[in-house]
Simulated scan of single mutants.
Amino acid sequence: MNMDFNVVTSRANARVKQLRAAFAGQARLSGGMVAIEGDHLLEEALRSGMVLKTVFVSERRSVPGIVPRSVEVLRLAQDVFQSVVETQSPQGVAALLVPPVRTLEAVLGAASEAAPLILIACGLQDPGNLGTLVRSAEAFGATGVITTPGTVSAWNQKALRASVGSVFRMPVVSATLDEVAGLRARGVRLLAAVGAEGDAAQGVDFARACALMIGNEGQGLAAEWLEIADGQVTIPCPGPVESLNAGVAGSLLLYEASRQRTRV
């Protein structure tokens, strides 16, 4: 039942501390909860079937009508609300949600669906790039996204905002080098995205089961990832640039894969 009768004025309130920890990415202190902020992400979370734990609203605004009556609602004093959220101009609404548990099986997709199309983020550190790639993965029909050790969390606040809600629906799982290499035994080709010297994307067969490995923004793919790759793919660029931004490169490759699969 909604509980918006009293205004919380203490920054030491247990729920407020939990929300603050969630925004900071402190899983243990947040009880494993994920924090979201703003009307759009709240709407996307509910539309995607996410389980909300608590909704927080500033005393200066009303409770969004889309919030189910079964969800706990806390109204916060304006200064308390602003002390917790991360944006410069908060919209006055935030929430704690239970993150979905995804598996590699979900990333591979159901057997009845088309061949898996997976994006693997290998050591990406820019949350904006990761969020963009999760959004592009959903837009271009990928079956899932894999993040490897050293990659920023898809639940990072900047990654969440960059995904514009796609992270709620797109399966995103963490995997080790060995687990990624194990995809080959399941019929998935591992394709390493490189700046040059790879096969031009237009000439690569993306219609078959495959996984696109996108490397770190500064160093690209580390040697261990290149060693397990079945092939290397590049995006021909007539302009005088060394390489593309990781988010742009991954999105273009996903588009090419989608284009080929739609044509088949």
Rank of each mutant, 00 (worst) to 15 (best):
residue 36 I to A: 00
residue 222 A to V: 07
residue 21 A to G: 03
residue 182 G to D: 14
residue 248 V to G: 01
residue 129 N to Y: 07
residue 146 I to Q: 09
residue 239 G to C: 08
residue 249 A to K: 02
residue 3 M to D: 15
residue 8 V to S: 12
residue 117 L to F: 04
residue 192 A to I: 10
residue 247 G to H: 06
residue 203 G to Y: 12
residue 226 L to G: 12
residue 178 D to R: 13
residue 162 A to S: 14
residue 49 G to M: 05
residue 223 A to G: 01
residue 86 E to R: 01
residue 189 R to I: 12
residue 177 L to Q: 12
residue 127 P to Q: 07
residue 190 L to T: 12
residue 147 T to F: 05
residue 230 D to Y: 01
residue 132 T to A: 12
residue 9 T to W: 08
residue 102 R to M: 09
residue 144 G to L: 06
residue 199 D to G: 04
residue 89 S to R: 15
residue 95 A to I: 04
residue 138 E to M: 14
residue 81 F to V: 09
residue 109 G to F: 14
residue 156 N to C: 02
residue 49 G to H: 00
residue 236 P to G: 06
residue 99 P to N: 13
residue 14 A to N: 10
residue 57 V to H: 00
residue 224 E to V: 01
residue 118 I to G: 10
residue 175 A to F: 10
residue 176 T to A: 01
residue 207 A to Q: 15
residue 106 A to W: 10
residue 165 G to W: 06
residue 156 N to W: 03
residue 214 I to E: 10
residue 103 T to P: 02
residue 147 T to V: 15
residue 240 P to G: 10
residue 70 S to D: 10
residue 22 A to Y: 12
residue 255 Y to L: 13
residue 127 P to C: 04
residue 77 A to Y: 04
residue 243 S to E: 09
residue 227 E to Y: 06
residue 86 E to N: 04
residue 135 R to L: 11
residue 59 E to K: 07
residue 145 V to I: 08
residue 182 G to R: 07
residue 236 P to I: 01
residue 120 I to S: 06
residue 53 K to L: 02
residue 18 Q to Y: 03
residue 164 V to K: 13
residue 174 S to D: 13
residue 251 S to P: 03
residue 95 A to Q: 02
residue 37 E to D: 06
residue 181 A to I: 04
residue 55 V to F: 11
residue 80 V to Y: 01
residue 181 A to D: 12
residue 235 I to E: 00
residue 124 L to C: 12
residue 2 N to H: 15
residue 104 L to T: 07
residue 219 Q to P: 03
residue 4 D to P: 04
residue 51 V to M: 05
residue 44 E to M: 08
residue 64 P to L: 11
residue 112 S to P: 05
residue 216 N to Y: 12
residue 39 D to G: 00
residue 55 V to Q: 06
residue 257 A to H: 11
residue 122 C to V: 13
residue 80 V to M: 01
residue 16 V to M: 06
residue 53 K to S: 01
residue 124 L to S: 11
